[in-house]
Write a protein that binds this DNA or RNA. Sequence first.
DNA 1: CCAATAGTCAAGTAATCGCTTGAGTATCCG
DNA 2: CGGATACTCAAGCGATTACTTGACTATTGG
Lengths: 108, 108
Amino acid sequence: MLDHRGRLDRLFHALADSTRRDVVERLVRGPASVSELAGSHSMTLQAVMQHLKVLEACGLVRTEKVGRVRTCALRPEGLRLAEGWLSGQRTGWEDRLDRLGELLEPDS
Amino acid sequence: MLDHRGRLDRLFHALADSTRRDVVERLVRGPASVSELAGSHSMTLQAVMQHLKVLEACGLVRTEKVGRVRTCALRPEGLRLAEGWLSGQRTGWEDRLDRLGELLEPDS
DNA sequence: CCAATAGTCAAGTAATCGCTTGAGTATCCG
DNA sequence: CGGATACTCAAGCGATTACTTGACTATTGG
């Protein structure tokens, strides 16, 4: 329950960087190796690896090394957790507006 | 369209702090003054104001000063934008899995 | 009027971030 | 074998973050 807090912290922090979001968008289309991911971002391989570490730490990405290639894949549960918090807030807000509306116009 | 990138950066960054998420959760229940928000967070008023500035800059919160009190309210559009990106990725992922499944089991 | 209240401006600080360079190590191919 | 490939480890660095303290302004209630 309190881990939830830190989990969301790490999750939203991970998503707050467009390079990392690009990685996620790429991995939605299927797994990729580290150098494959680095290819499209004019940035050193090491930098991409650091981003990958962040994505892995928050549970958004799973990686596995086979031979000399590390293959990265998406883990959608993280996305769902963040989505859940967001939609919870939004619907909470909408419910409140509905109740306010009913107070002003008590028909329907 | 390119502003979208920076907008999501700021949005997710704003949500990556649990104090700021607390503020959002509070504002879902209705508007509040700055000191009201500061009350529950053992932290100076100034710190809370800085968080508020972040929330305002990314469009999640709207504030208005009347007399000597500044009243803060939620703006749900930001939530919707972030939610949209997240669900886009998730459904992209699910569609891909569906297509994979059809390849393996070509019935239905 | 005047003190308490509510917020504001500015500067300083320790920690973290995103990225780099440089120097490995392990695997694979010819 | 030997060179190319694919990472990995570590240190450093400028920028940004999340606060703090301290001083100041504008309202408001008695």
